[in-house]
Simulated scan of single mutants.
Amino acid sequence: MTEDFKHGVKRGIPICLGYLSVSFTFGLLTVNGGFPIWIAVLISISNLTGAGQFAAMNLMIYGTTYAEIALTTLFINLRYTLMSISLSQKLKSEIPTRKRLLIGYGITDEVFGVASLESGSLSFPFMMGLILISLAGWLSGTVLGALICSAMPEYLSSSMGIAIYGMFIAIVIPPLKKSRPILYIVLFSIILNMIMYYIPAFHKISTGFRVIITSLIASGIGAYLYPAKEEEENA
């Protein structure tokens, strides 16, 4: 175990602890939705993204098509492509493509944030330490949540489903308090969802595609009305 790997593990411990609670909720949701524990573990290890997993699992519970699940996951996870491209500029030049692809698998919002703040070039052992400890936290929480939910009486495990709403509130509220544009975009998304839910003409559109349509329209309007301002550097 190299010093870089140890340093990556040390830097990833807070991520690991944070992932435990979120993935615990995902394990509860999966088993509560009627899926076996191994499905929860398989999804967590193959699709390392909280928002993508929760969205996909909800669509699976609703019984939507594979195309809807794939498109929704694609749009939600598209930002990781940009993060991986950005982070590749900090990787040491001697890291081969196969190892860069392995690093790309483990890029999440938190991993990207921690790695971006590191000074100097990033080595492969450091990234593996950071990713593996984060993955360990995510998988551990998933397994614990799934096991506990499966051991509970049905009436109690069903009531635990409310935890997902608490998690979503915890994710959304802090950015809303800091940014007016995000607040307006979220409110517009809510209004658009209500329109598509209560107007019968939209009932022909499945739940999965409603999520996709709402996401695209809201994010498109947000990008148009509130474009990110590039920072100008003074020579």
Rank of each mutant, 00 (worst) to 15 (best):
S44D: 02
P181K: 14
S121Q: 12
C16V: 08
L82F: 15
T25R: 02
L122E: 05
Y165M: 02
M60D: 03
Y165F: 11
A115W: 12
S219Q: 04
R180C: 05
F112V: 14
F112G: 01
E232W: 04
I13Q: 09
K10Q: 05
P14C: 10
P200S: 12
L122I: 10
S44G: 08
K92R: 15
G166Q: 05
M127S: 13
A228T: 14
N47S: 11
I164N: 10
T108H: 04
L29D: 08
V114C: 02
M1A: 09
I13N: 07
G12Y: 03
M167C: 04
G220C: 01
G220M: 00
G12R: 08
S121A: 12
E230N: 10
Y80W: 11
D4A: 05
A218G: 06
Q53N: 09
P174S: 10
I103Y: 00
S123D: 13
N32T: 01
S46N: 05
A70K: 08
N193F: 12
I103A: 08
A228I: 11
R79T: 08
I39R: 06
P36F: 01
S121L: 06
E68N: 04
L135H: 15
V9C: 13
I61E: 04
V172Q: 11
V31W: 00
I191E: 00
F54C: 05
M194P: 00
I133T: 09
I37S: 07
I37Q: 06
L28G: 01
L225H: 05
I37F: 09
E233M: 08
K6F: 03
M60V: 02
H7F: 03
E68M: 07
S119T: 11
G145V: 06
L78A: 08
T81M: 14
I85A: 09
T73V: 10
T81Y: 15
Y19H: 10
L156P: 12
S46E: 00
L130S: 02
V31A: 03
L59A: 03
V186R: 11
S189R: 13
I164V: 15
